[in-house]
């Protein structure tokens, strides 16, 4: 355990006077897949970026514990909802984070090839990454984020607007990353996916965590009428 648990204390994010997230308290511990669930505009993406340190809260603190807390960013990675692929081959894309860390070329390409195989992108390794399909680009972005062996991996809507086949591949990939011991914090508004993947569900609405619990607790016994309405498919927020 190097940087977990993560603690958000009285975190509030405002932009031009509008409240986007918070004030909220949140703790994320090691192990499992935490899914932040909520309708569009509830602040899910902003919350992930706050955790990752790309968005600085207007007030409150984001604290990592453990002996490596000072350079916590080194031990986490994020995949954005529309991930950028570099204008390079798939292999060079996946190896890129290691290149920034000064890992020798042969070593980083070998590691990239292993992960490309895990993502079943072998046939495309030498292709220009910008010509890949949306699902292939998403897989590339996930293994690219994974290559630095982060302790925590943030995934923002990893399967939004993908076809069922690509969604299945990506969920399998997320499963193997979880199995390898990386903590996953992701956002989703796909209820089926949440049931399939989550060990811990946070219901975010209007920038606030309304409820949190296991899949069973959230889906079988929602505590609020809003959550129940959201699970029924009603428009909330």
């Amino acid at each position: 355990m190097r940087i977990l648990p993560l603690s958000l204390t009285k975190v509030l994010v405002e932009r031009e006077g509008d409240r986007l997230v918070g004030p909220l308290e949140m703790t994320v511990g090691a192990g499992g897949i935490s899914v932040v669930m909520g309708p569009n505009g509830s602040g899910k993406s902003t919350l992930l970026k706050v955790c990752h340190g790309l968005v600085t809260p207007t007030s409150g603190t984001v604290a990592w514990a453990g002996d490596q807390a000072a350079n916590a960013r080194r031990h986490q990675a994020i995949v954005f909802q529309k991930p950028a692929v570099l204008r390079r081959s798939v292999r060079e894309n996946v190896a890129y984070p290691l290149k920034l860390r000064g890992v020798p070329r042969a070593e980083r390409l070998e590691k990239a090839d292993q992960l490309i195989a895990r993502a079943r992108l072998n046939a495309l390794a030498d292709r220009d990454a910008t010509v890949l399909s949306g699902g292939e680009q998403q897989k590339l972005a996930i293994v690219r984020a994974w290559i630095t062996e982060p302790e925590v991996l943030f995934l923002d809507e990893p399967t939004a607007s993908l076809d069922p086949g690509a969604t299945r591949d990506i969920e399998a990939l997320i499963g193997s990353i979880d199995a390898a011991g990386t903590k996953i914090v992701m956002t989703s508004h796909d209820l089926g996916q949440i049931k399939r993947l989550a060990t811990d569900v946070l219901f975010l609405l209007d920038g606030l965590i309304k409820e949190r619990g296991t899949v069973e607790q959230i889906f079988d016994s929602p505590q609020s009428e809003t959550l129940a309405a959201f699970l029924r498919g009603d428009i909330v927020g």
């Binding site: 990752h52 790309l54 960013r73 080194r74 990675a77 994020i78 954005f80 991930p83 950028a84 570099l86 204008r87 390079r88 890129y96 984070p97 920034l100």
Partner: peptide
């Protein structure tokens, strides 16, 4: 296009410049 990715990877200004020049 690259900004968020490179920021999240903590790329240094020199690395950012090199990456952009190469990819463009």
């Amino acid at each position: 296009h690259y900004r968020e990715l490179l920021q999240s990877l903590d790329a240094t200004p020199a690395q950012i410049t090199a990456t952009l020049l190469w990819d463009a």
